[in-house]
Amino acid sequence: MTQPLLRVENLQTHFATRAGTVKAVDGVSFDLRRGEILGLVGESGSGKSVTGQSILGLVDPPGRIAGGRVLFDGEDLVTAGEKRLRAIRGRRIAMIFQDPMMTLNPVLSVETQMVEAVLAHDKVGRAEARRRSRDALGRVGIASPEERLAAYPHQFSGGMRQRVAIAIALLHSPDLILADEPTTALDVTIQAQILFEVQTLCRDTGTALLWVTHDLAVVSALADRVAVMYAGRIVETGPIADVIQAPRHPYTRGLLDSVPSRNRRGVPLRSIPGMTPSVLDLPKGCAFQPRCGRADAACAVMPELPENGHAWRCWHPHDADARGAAA
């Protein structure tokens, strides 16, 4: 196998707080190949966003990367300098956030922002930069891109603004797009439009995509592989169909079972007891113990996550018997 585009190795990102050290990301490892879509799934506070920020070197104090490597095309971004990171961000790795206004400047026209973004990394003339900007808007399904270039962000709807943010991300045909809940705030029909554009792009350009979300349904329809996070660690990972069909970790299974459409209508939903944990207050060993029906004495030792294929971090995984989408 060729070297993956992105290899995250035993990443540790900690926040020093008054209450103690928050190990927001605690030993996360995964690979992403060119053209591949990986869904990073988990409930709020599980460490998804911090994982994304760590890859890009965007963790602000009191946070810091306390260990591990982020190999992008073989180069370790954790030890790379800020100048080098800036050259990579925007050009080879692009970002899309839940709130497009994280990317867009409210007081500049879309044209100014896009042209500047092109010129920041490429030695081309203004006319060429403008042409590329217009084409990028067209590619994300914005009608009459020529006229829309002159508009300001507030003149767009939420869905349109997110498209503009995606168009900016595409300007340099990046090798990797890191998307953090980009459709969470959007309506179903608008979300479907954006997923359609993104899917088409990855297929046509070979761009790899890390899609961070709490929404298993979106990942099941979009991703090639999935990694499920709980309390700062990956607890299960594998090809998406394998994980959906036969979740082995009790948390993954619990998450899938909680989805209303996977339950018989009108009967109580199968739910996970207890609440999402604070990473400051985790039990010794497996973090899922207090909520897990299978926990026993063995679970006081942290189970490992084996490498490769469909893998899970659990001493007492569920059987592989397919449960399918039926419920």
Binding site: S157, G159, M160, D187, V188, T189, I190, Q191, A192, Q193, L195, F196, Q199, D215, L216, A217, V218, S220, A221, L222, A223, D224, I240, A241, I244, Q245, L256, V259, S261, R262, G324, A325
Partner: peptide, 19 residues
Amino acid sequence: EAPRVTLEKRRFAPIRGEI
């Protein structure tokens, strides 16, 4: 277009336009 947990990758074929 409502996302559902599926076993197959889906081609999204959205209706056009905004509300």
